[in-house]
């Protein structure tokens, strides 16, 4: 029961985070497009916060977006032109390439690709 209650509490907090995250959607269409790669703003916010606590130099969304685009070898225009599905495919491939090259980050024990962590950080 304690776990169920804890879970419920976390969901409640999660909704608040989601509302906060949604209410501060960026005007930058590139950032918005990249954010759309993850469908769970609550989870992304949580993961992104932990990532930024380790990589505070990347806290500016525009800078973060440029790092992600650079990894994906895309220009801003490319990213806006691409269908979300195509962009998602590129994203998935880059995540795997990150793992292959050891470009990973450790967040609370989870070994994640740097690109996926950065995309999450766009939701913070």
């Amino acid at each position: 029961m304690a776990l169920v209650r804890a879970g419920g509490l976390a969901f409640t907090l999660g909704r608040q985070v989601a509302v906060a995250a949604t209410s501060s959607l960026p005007a930058d269409p590139v950032v918005a497009k990249l954010r759309s790669l993850v469908s769970d703003p609550v989870g992304a916010h949580c993961i992104g916060q932990i990532y930024l606590s380790q990589a505070s130099a990347e806290s500016d969304p525009a800078h973060l977006a440029s790092l992600i685009l650079s990894s994906l070898k895309l220009t801003s225009q490319d990213s806006l032109r691409l269908q979300r599905r195509a962009l998602s495919k590129l994203f998935g491939a880059e995540v795997r390439a990150d793992f292959a090259a050891g470009r990973t980050v450790a967040l609370n024990g989870w070994i994640l690709s740097r690109t996926e962590a950065r995309v999450c950080a766009l939701w913070t």
Binding site: S39, V42, G43, A44, I47, S88, L112
Partner: peptide
């Protein structure tokens, strides 16, 4: 809950990446 919460989020994230 602290141990579990990020697991949930990582699973959600993975859904997006691996589909």
């Amino acid at each position: 809950d602290a141990a579990n919460s990020l697991t949930y989020f990582v699973q959600r994230l993975s859904l997006d990446v691996e589909s």
